[in-house]
Structures are given as C-alpha cells and as structure tokens.
C-alpha cells in the first residue's frame, strides 16, 4: 500500500473551517428559524454567531476560490466535457453505489491528487461550489444588512424570496451533509477518508498506486 498526499494542508484547513462553519450555521439557523421550538441559546446570540460563522464561511470560500484558481486545481472540479463519457462514468459510479458496493465490486474510481473526485462528486461539487455556495453566501450577506442591500433584495424578488432561497439552500446543504458524511465512511475502512482529511494522506491500493 502506498500513501499519497491527497489533501494538502490548506485544503484540509479549509475543509474543517467549512465543516465547523456549516455545523454552527445549521444549528444557529435552526435556532433562528424555530425559536418557539428550540432553546439552545438566545435569539440575539444566535444572530451574532450565525453572522460570524457566515462571514467565516464566506471568507473561507473566497480563499478556496483564489487558491484553486491560482493553483489550477479548479480542474479537479471540472467533469469530463464529453457528455456521453460523463454520463456513462456517472452511471457507472451510481451503479457501484447502488448495486456494486453491496456485492463487493471494486469502486470504479480511485482518487489521486490530480483526480480526487469521482464523476458524481465532480458534478455535485461543481454545482455546490460554483452555484449553490455563492447563492448561499450572497443571500446570507443580503439578509445580514437588509436595508443596506434593499435594492439588491428588490432586484432578487423581495426579502421573502431571498430568505426562502437562503433557507432552501441551507436545507439542501444539510441534506447533502448526511450523504457526504456517510459517503466518507465508504472507504476501505469506515474512517479511512475521514482520517485522510486530517492527515492529508490516503493509502492507495497497489493496483492503483501507480
């Protein structure tokens, strides 16, 4: 087995800042939205924490964007531009998770530093990082200063639509979070991928070590 550095340190820091931010934002978001049912902390505290971690997530996103654009690592997120190949590879990956994994098939995809994400991950993360995250951040920033961004909010269709979009995206991320964490346990061992996100290194099968 060969160890490769799959997640460089900046990526790992970014990932865990993101993870923490998402967790806190989800908890405080639930507190803000469902105050009559949830009493973890006062509303005012929840607002402050939500704002803080919201900006932390925003900052983190821009660091990621600059880092990935500057290093060209952004290509990790670019799926196969050949649509047929893309669909076939996605189908192949879906088939693995939906069937092959149960009968002991090998994962058709093996992560390398230059090709970390399987075709389904690529498509999902591309949409998440290029569409959903910016939308979540923009709506969040608009809601942070409603009066200051009144024109933008009106252009976006109104406060209710901005908030609905923000909450809907948060719900999507929460849903994704469960799947994301579960998929992270589908390595050779349940903690393999998670451990790699701390250490940066993951063991490669001999078969794929070259």
């Amino acid at each position: 087995m060969k160890k490769i550095e799959l997640h460089p340190l900046p990526v790992r820091i970014w990932h865990w800042i993101n993870a923490l931010s998402f967790l806190v934002l989800i908890v405080t978001g639930i507190q803000l939205r469902y105050r009559e049912m949830v009493g973890i902390m006062p509303f005012r505290t929840a607002v402050d924490i939500h704002n803080f971690f919201g900006f932390l997530l925003t900052g983190s996103y821009f660091i990621w964007l600059v880092y990935y654009l500057a290093t060209g690592k952004i290509r990790l997120y670019i799926p196969d531009l050949n649509l047929k190949r893309l669909l076939m590879s996605m189908l192949n990956q879906a088939k693995y998770y939906g069937y092959g994994i149960f009968i002991g098939d090998k994962n058709p995809f093996h992560a390398t530093p230059d090709d970390k994400f399987n075709p389904m991950q690529k498509s999902s993360y591309l949409i998440i990082m290029v569409v959903l995250m910016p939308l979540l951040i923009i709506t969040g920033v608009l809601l942070w200063n409603v009066k200051g961004f009144a024109k933008w909010i009106t252009m976006a269709g109104g406060l209710k639509i901005v908030d609905t979009t923000h909450v809907f995206l948060a719900m999507c991320f929460l849903t994704f979070l469960f799947v994301h964490i579960y998929l992270a346990t589908l390595g050779t061992t349940p903690i393999e991928h998670i451990k790699a996100m701390f250490t940066g290194y993951e063991e490669l099968d001999e078969e794929h070590s070259h």
Binding site: L32, R33, Y34, R35, E36, F43, I153, T154, G157, G158, L159, K160, I161, D163, T164, V167, F168, M171, C172, L174, T175, F176, L177, F178, V179
Partner: peptide, 27 residues
C-alpha cells in the same frame, strides 16, 4: 408580500415541509 418577512415569525410553512422531507431523505 415579497418585502415583508420577519425571521422565524412569518416563515413559509411549505418550506418547512419541504425541508423536513429533504432532511428525512438525507438521513
């Protein structure tokens, strides 16, 4: 009434239902 929204108090009930279904699916 797209411009009137009070956090928590005037939340869309339909969105709550969608959210519950999504999270239930995610779990």
């Amino acid at each position: 009434a797209s411009q009137f929204y009070a956090l928590g108090s005037t939340r869309l009930k339909m969105l709550d239902i969608i959210g519950i279904l999504m999270v239930a699916g995610g779990v």
